[in-house]
Design a protein around this nucleic acid. Structure first.
Lengths: 141, 141
DNA sequence: TTGAATGCAAAGTGTTTGCACGTGC
DNA sequence: GCACGTGCAAACACTTTGCATTCAA
């Protein structure tokens, strides 16, 4: 589970209580949270945790490539602790829940469509309605 | 080209000079612009054009499904006038240029990975370096 | 001990909104 | 004529930054 903390320690990361709690929140969740949500959960464990520290820490973890920053196109970014296993995302367009999916193949862009770009990766987001939101109103976009 | 204006007129859209100019800017460009860029171009044609009006108009066109709003994950949103032909995007991670690509297949999510969602569509963004940015510094992320 | 991390509040972006004025139909 | 569009500035949501203080190593 949270070998995240292990890895960070061996990489010489300065381990403060706030950082530990933030890393725990990330590792303990299976849905991808926003900075505010991470802050709220962190504060229940350690009240003296500022929102700015949460942002600072998240940005640092992104730079260290220990988490992924995911923008849903609407509202705040979400942070994905699952960097080890390549995956794609499934987004609820109503409630913005974001979860991982593991489909078969990653698409590639034919050379004829690369237009001189050096293509590094492809990011896929499936969009739809989560089970909860389907109940409330099955259709309409 | 700009049958966009045709369609809007027949849909009973109130056609002001500002709206005409904004629609022309959208139709005339092959790269996807930000609201600021659209505003700047619109002002060269019609100086009395406010940024708020640009945002209002773009949002309205999005609701009318005459343009697409595309978030690049970093920085401002971009607006894609190409709503007729299904396509995907190629994004430069350095300069944020965004262009359309037309690869073969749209991926589908196997039922076993749908987790109770009603999947509506899939959005693919290929990420890489555009020709210009490759010149300046071919690698490093 | 000391450089790095923290909380807070202020600043920064990108976007939306309230309101008085102007205008397409 | 009048409902709707406009420009402007203020408000807004999210994120970053400056600075004095605290603390992990």
């Amino acid at each position: 589970m949270s070998d995240l903390l292990e890895r960070l320690r061996t990489r010489g990361w300065r381990l403060t209580p706030q950082r530990r709690v933030i890393a725990e929140v990330l590792a303990g969740e299976h849905v991808h949270l926003t900075a505010e949500e991470i802050h709220a959960r962190a504060q229940t464990k350690l009240p003296e945790t500022g929102l700015a520290t949460v942002y600072n820490t998240l940005n640092e973890l992104v730079s260290l490539r220990e988490i992924l920053e995911v923008s849903t196109g609407e509202g705040p970014k979400r942070y994905d602790p699952n960097v080890r296993r390549p995956h794609q995302h499934l987004l609820c367009i109503r409630c913005a829940e974001l979860r991982d999916v593991y489909p078969a193949e990653a698409p590639t862009l034919p050379a004829s469509e690369q237009h001189g770009y050096e293509v590094l990766d492809a990011q896929i987001t499936f969009r739809g309605l989560c089970p909860e939101c389907r109940k409330q109103s099955p259709a309409s976009s």
